[in-house]
Design a protein around this nucleic acid. Structure first.
Lengths: 258, 258
DNA sequence: GTAATAGTGTCTGTTAGACACTATTCT
DNA sequence: AGAATAGTGTCTAACAGACACTATTAC
């Protein structure tokens, strides 16, 4: 037995009251695409949705809650969230990010339970599959407005969803997470629509020109070309083919002063 | 006994292994000012420092650690941090913000201990007072370089300090936290020096002009005037008096796309 | 006068914002 | 031709970046 182990044996961590559990809850966002009926090709309608599960048991039986689960001793909280995400959706990988801690006394009637919120960006089909596999009654995809204004939510999950929404809006403008909602190659209209869906009051009349022809932002996006250097285009959503782009791994440094 | 209480009685939260403690650790930053010897008035030298405490007992006896303490059942983690900050410095108020959670298994030899990091911006005299009140040997103010490269640090506190440093640099450019390091009224040189101290590679040759005469940033700062509308100036750090400014409560929205 | 910081002039090239206009393809 | 999205032209005012220059005051 080494020195540390010996000392650890003498140290009694349960001298004080300790929490009753440390769950990780995940705000899973997805962007649903809905075909628009029209005579010709057109961009689909996007909607930002969040996955919620109807609780069956006490506390908050019948209310909707974020998917999540308790952390175990042998894993970090990120691993807990990652494991839960995998258990809930069958997918690992994808964008998973820490949001914050929720520890207001009394937030959970089961005891002293400190929850950690994460948010994930998941493809629509993943959540649809999950919904099909499970009791369809229990799993739902809701718009932010529905979740915040119409549903009865468990615990402090309304606060968590609000915070996650604020965060994803900020991230959508300040980082390149938009790529999580886009195929590897995409047109600028698709990108613009994705941004607009998450941040409705983002309006840029000259969006195409701005992201392509200004030097200061040069490097966020690049044109996709084939092996012969020919620029690749897509006409999936339009009559006239549009140039395809991809994100580079460059992210500019933002500042309020300059 | 109401329904919830009855159910809570039947619910056994200790069915599973639970953590041994949830501390909050605080990265306390301060900006030290050092007079420069010169024949005339000049700006002081600023340095960004972090407060660390030398541990006396197991584990990591002799190593430096962030100040902090365990959370109690009747308080949120922000309250824990706020209480610790008050206990450590005698000051409440000031800037205190959540940084993140540190939960890697094995990070604390005392057991399963999940720590939450906060960072605080504190005035220099507060920490000096703290240092005087206590055993001066135990409390130290160190530059980031000293803390990260020269000191033996307890737990995963090197990681925490790194993360806090990254965060304060980001915040310094994207929010108006610079005001935490400045008096209510300040000159633009002071502001520039504060920013430069925290983010050394922030270089703006036309800083004064940029923050004063460009419309898009209009509203971050405003000139300070007296009751007669006369503009207030200071010659504390210069021969020629300089216009005093204050922050408004406006913060622009930043975006990589526009 | 000299030192030290405050602030302006000036120049070129780039960008923002508004909005009209052309381009490409499918039906 | 009409629909739908892609993308350019054009104009003005604002801004960025570089760097030389003047201004104010204390010593």
């Amino acid at each position: 037995m080494n020195d540390d182990q010996e000392k650890a044996k003498n140290y009694n961590p349960k001298k004080y009251r300790t929490p009753d559990g440390i769950p990780a809850d995940i705000v899973m966002f997805t962007l649903t695409k809905q075909e628009r009926r029209s005579s010709t090709k057109s961009l689909p309608l996007f909607e930002l949705k969040v996955m919620l599960i109807r609780r069956r048991s006490w506390p908050f039986a019948g209310a909707y809650a974020l998917p999540g689960g308790f952390s175990q001793e042998n894993e970090s909280l990120y691993e807990t969230a990652s494991r839960e995400l995998q258990e809930e959706t069958g997918v690992d990988g994808g964008h998973l990010e820490y949001l914050g801690v929720y520890s207001t006394p009394g937030r959970d009637p089961r005891g002293w339970i400190i929850s950690h919120a994460f948010y994930a960006l998941v493809e629509e089909w993943v959540l649809e599959k999950r919904k099909a596999a499970d009791d369809a009654q229990a799993v739902g995809l809701f718009t932010i407005q529905e979740a915040l204004e119409e549903l009865e939510l468990a615990f402090d999950h309304r606060e968590i969803i609000k915070d996650a929404y604020r965060r994803i809006q900020e991230q959508m403008l300040q980082t390149t997470i938009a790529k999580q909602f886009l195929p590897p190659h995409f047109t600028l209209s698709e990108l613009y629509q994705v941004i607009r869906t998450v941040v409705p009051d983002f309006e840029e009349l000259n969006f195409i020109r701005k992201v392509t022809s200004t030097r200061s932002r040069q490097g966020i996006l690049e044109e996709v070309v084939d092996e012969n250097g020919k620029r690749l285009v897509s006409n999936q959503y339009s009559q006239r083919p549009a140039q395809l782009y991809r994100f580079t791994d460059f992210t500019p440094r933002l500042s309020i002063y300059t």
